[in-house]
Computed example of a mutant assay.
Amino acid sequence: MAVSRFLIGGIASALLLSGGVFIWKGYSQIAEEAVIPDAPPDPGPIPVAGAGAPKRGAAPPELPAAKDASREERRFNRYDRDRNEVVSRVEMMSTRTAAFRKLDKDGNNLLTFEEWAAATGERFAGADKDKSGGLSRAEFATTAPKRAAVAKCKC
């Protein structure tokens, strides 16, 4: 019984192998018969304008001037990273990531009260120039985040 299964399996695999060879040969003959042109046909001579033809056509229509974006539009566009006209929560919070990383001293992506208090205390102490324990209006103004300098284009 085991020998007959072995023989049947051998005959079936030989038939499959020979069928695959015939199919492969048939496809290779079809591919050899197909003609693929190497280059497009020659379009012929290029027409040349006559002596009395105008040098160029009419001027293109005037394009409308681009309007300057308002302050709010520029601010919105800063947050709308994927330019789909909608600000997602991820886009809104992405600008806060760098500030969070500075506060997270141990780098575990969790901000403890101690980490926050230490950073706030250092910032307060740096702003309290007269060491009075309170911030005057001028001292408080120094705690605002510094704006990044905008490079002028030298186009």
Rank of each mutant, 00 (worst) to 15 (best):
K25E: 07
R81G: 02
G107T: 04
E114T: 14
L63V: 12
K129D: 06
A34L: 12
E72W: 14
W116N: 03
A138I: 13
P145H: 01
A66K: 14
G133N: 12
R56Q: 11
L15R: 08
A12E: 05
K25F: 10
A138W: 04
K129S: 10
E85M: 07
L103M: 10
A49R: 15
P40G: 03
K152F: 13
A149M: 05
V87Y: 00
A34G: 13
V35P: 02
V90W: 09
A149H: 04
A141E: 11
F140C: 09
E72H: 13
E62W: 04
L16T: 11
D42P: 09
A59V: 10
E139Y: 00
A14P: 03
R101W: 07
D68Y: 15
G26C: 03
L110H: 07
E73Y: 00
L15S: 03
D80K: 00
A31C: 02
N109F: 06
T112K: 01
R137P: 01
A98M: 08
G19F: 11
Q29Y: 03
L111P: 00
A66C: 12
N84W: 02
R75G: 02
S18L: 11
V21C: 10
D38H: 13
E72Q: 11
A151N: 08
P41K: 05
K146V: 15
N84G: 05
T143L: 07
D80N: 07
A69Y: 05
A39P: 04
E33K: 14
A14D: 09
R56S: 09
A144F: 15
R74P: 00
G121L: 09
R89F: 08
K131S: 04
F124V: 02
I30M: 09
G19T: 12
F124C: 01
E73S: 04
A98K: 12
F100Q: 02
I11F: 15
A125K: 15
V35T: 08
A125H: 08
S132R: 10
A66G: 10
L110F: 14
G19V: 03
L15V: 14
K67D: 13
